[in-house]
Amino acid sequence: MSGPSRLSVRNIRKSFGTHEVLKGISLDAKDGDVISLLGASGSGKSTFLRCINLLEIATEGEIFVDGEEIRMVKKGGRNQPASQKQVDHIRSELGMVFQSFNLWSHMTILQNVIEGPVHVLKRPRAECIAEAEALLEKVGIVDKRHAYPAHLSGGQQQRAAIARALAMKPKAMLFDEPTSALDPELVGEVLRVMRALAEEGMTMLVVTHEMSFARNVSNRVVFMREGVVDSSGTPEEMFGGGGSPAFRQFIGHLGPA
């Protein structure tokens, strides 16, 4: 838990118009950290995640991936990445898993998984296919590799999306509510894959509503409220009655985990 810093975010602020969604958030993820980001909807946790891989551009703040700072410039009073090339590079090092899977519907599952390695990383195709098949085996859908996404159940699609992100050999994985769009009976299969990843030592940042995951898999829990980090700590601290009153109220609403 004390490896080098994989991901470091300092004082991120983000406004949409006059509405400030993130009011200065800092976070450090060391190698192998699994951090659960909790919070009511509207607390800014998804926006925060999207700021890290620059799907949203933070109004202020610094982001370091594996020690490399994402360079920003002010352009017309607004923060802009200094180099699109660096942005593309950083993104290729961070795996992102979306709530709505976002598999490319015109490609088969295998094509989805090898797309990034072949075309972004420009690695040999045969090698990528072999690796992709191993990844699909790992997430349990290798038999679906020639199917199109619309063929698959939500749980299978999300597992394919995880394989697609893993194929880039990311330095850290970002999960944006990966199970929220799934039918309850399909949540388990995705959580199992995520748990296996965590046990292998993957650095993970997970926005979730799954209290069992936060409690049993992650090693740190961060509770966000109204654009700031309200409280954070180990699952034992947070769920053992140590969280802030707001956090206790939040998990109380959701019922016992």
Binding site: N53, I90, R91, M96, F98, V120
Partner: peptide, 10 residues
């Protein structure tokens, strides 16, 4: 989302 996934993969 599919365009976003393309962004996210770099």
């Amino acid at each position: 989302g599919e365009l976003e996934a393309a962004l996210a993969i770099g």
